[in-house]
Design a protein around this nucleic acid. Sequence first.
RNA 1: GGCGCUAUCGUCUAGGGGUCCAGGACAGGUGGUUCUCAGCCAUCAGACCGGGGUUCGAAUCCCCGUAGCGCUACCA
Length: 476
Amino acid sequence: MSVRVRFAPSPTGWLHVGGARTAYFNWLYARQHRGQLVLRIEDTDVERSSDDAERGVLEDLAWLGLDHDEGPGSAGPHGPYRQSERLPLYRRRADELLERGLVYPCFCTDADLERRRQAALATGRPPHYDGRCRALTVAERERRLGAREPYSLRFAVAGLEWVLEDLVRGRVRFPAGVVGDFVVLRSSGLPTYNFACVVDDAGMEISHVIRAEEHLANTPRQLMLYAAFDWTPPRFAHVPLILNRDRTKMSKRSGEAAVAVGDYRRAGVVPEALLSYLALLGFHPGDDREILTRAELLEAFSLERVGRSGSVFDPDKLRWVNAHYLHHASGADLLRWGAGFLPAAARGLAAADQIRLLEAVRGNLATLADLPGELAPMLGEETAPDEEARAVLGAPRSREICAALADNLERLADWSAEAVKSALLAEGKRLGIKGRELFQPVRAALTGRVHGPELPVVAGTLGRERCIARLRAAAR
RNA sequence: GGCGCUAUCGUCUAGGGGUCCAGGACAGGUGGUUCUCAGCCAUCAGACCGGGGUUCGAAUCCCCGUAGCGCUACCA
């Protein structure tokens, strides 16, 4: 049987890191098994869905490099892929169940339902639908239908136990009688989540449903629908939730960490790092590796090694993973990732020069957002020396070394980091100064700071004229 | 309230009866390396939710508690 999985976001906001992880697991599973990944937009909640949000989700997925085989706009064989465009399908399926007496019209209003629900809760009864419209006589039903009373369609739940063989949680039993008659088609004609989900997963020939644990308790409803249609259900894999520090489901409300993929993109996290971090939140490769590339994950990933308990999102560890990627990246990758974070002074430079700059500072980066700050001294922007730098420049022999080095650099045949370094060391030797006492004044003179990338590299990048001018200024 | 899921260092986790006085990683402490920060290296500290069983032996299996979370919607 060929593997077909799907990622089914509802476009009610930006892509959430939890959604990104689910999408990644699905992507990995599909690619591992040479199957297909379907992207389906679940926009049946018209109140909360928007085109903007859908665009945002699509952009974030593209940024992460999670491509799909079928989805909105790709005209696949099982489309359309937007639930709002599949309404007639749901209607037809609902009618089918209506004819067979498996669903029934319910005329209860929202207000009635809510009141009865509260009353049930207050007296300690299960807050399920009480089934009163299920008991309507044929005559009564016909009369109210004829009177054009608005109605929803409810599934007539049978008293059966349901057993789910979940690929990550094992066997899960749902005893009979805990699920009330649920709505399948709203009075607006729009399907509910559980109904649309089943009609679509079946219609799109989905073989494995890999989704978040919050859907676990919905699964018996879906199983009932599969049985009602006499369809074979897909295999299910419910992956644990990503949590806030307080261990509630991660959301923008209660958490202090950003939840949207876009927030991390803007904060200078690279997609590979986010993906690696997210995958290892809940999945364990079975060895001590802490960072796995996409290719390595394609090798190592399996649903069996996905944990069963929720995981707290740790921005510090993500930062560490991101720094690792930045420190080990090729110049080309750095440029691809960092182009958008380059300060104005570096934008106009040739790609080769930009790469040189990025490589010089990459060791100091935790995120791409550090780029402007790290690059500033390399780009020759005039910055007044800070307090520490002034203290260093005020030291006894600082003027002496600056003046001597300026003279030496004027005579230098070729200009490179290596040449500057030998010149500096030569002057230091001549004056009997080395180490800290030698490097720090020069660094302070050139950048106005006492911290930064390797000094020769800084000098090399800054260029001869600027270096000499600054050394002379400091020597005065 | 009901049902379900989960429970190892602050956090992510390894562990699936003896090899565990519980291993790795992030964060934290200390030291080393480097002109400096970062990095890197070394090193320290830090956990099996509680109680009962089963067993010669339990972090690992079972039961009962407890806690957290999820679901219980004409949200997804």
